[in-house]
């Protein structure tokens, strides 16, 4: 544990800030339709929030909040949500990703708006999951056994 990680002030501030960061990221994702932002930016910010947590509280601690399994489901799930929306359009007799054919809302534009949000959420899920897992993988291992895992596995 470094000095920064031990600093009670920083730990407290981070703990307080993280909900706001996550909330902001959700706002960015949902706000993509009418202003700057979208799945990407939101996903990255969400990921950054978790990464911040992991930096201060340690990766092991962060993994308790968002486990590898959850990560994997989020990453795959986001994409399946996106692609599934496209496939749904096919099922309703349209082209892939043709939102207009899905009889979700009275007007095509409105349906498209809803589905664009769905798609953005899908992107957000994948991006946040991947960003987190990238950080977990790239940052230095914390325990001794993790250090030398490669020799045993291969």
């Amino acid at each position: 544990m470094s000095d920064i990680q031990q600093s009670i002030i920083i730990r407290t501030i981070v703990r307080i800030m993280i909900p706001f960061i996550l909330l902001f990221s959700l706002y960015v994702i949902m706000h993509g339709a009418s202003g700057p932002g979208g799945g990407f930016q939101g996903g990255v910010i969400f990921g950054a929030g978790i990464i911040l947590y992991a930096m201060i509280y340690g990766i092991e601690e962060a993994k308790k909040k968002i486990s590898d399994k959850a990560n994997r489901i989020l990453a795959s799930g986001g994409l399946v949500l996106y692609a599934g929306t496209g496939l749904l359009a096919i099922l309703f007799g349209g082209m892939f990703l043709e939102y207009g054919v899905i009889p979700l809302m009275p007007t095509t534009a409105y349906t498209a708006k809803i589905l664009i949000d769905v798609v953005e959420i899908g992107i957000g899920m994948t991006v946040l999951a991947v960003m987190i897992s990238l950080f977990f993988d790239i940052s230095p291992p914390e325990t001794e056994e993790d250090m030398h895992i490669h020799e045993e596995v291969e």
Binding site: R72, S76, V80
Partner: peptide, 27 residues
């Protein structure tokens, strides 16, 4: 018809989705 009309897209979409699903299936 739905399938035949969309074959060009499915050429790419099917391995794409299958690729996403692999981690879940492997799990």
């Amino acid at each position: 018809d739905i399938i035949t009309n969309n074959l060009p897209a499915l050429t790419v979409i099917i391995p794409l989705i299958a690729g996403f699903l692999t981690p879940i299936i492997g799990w």
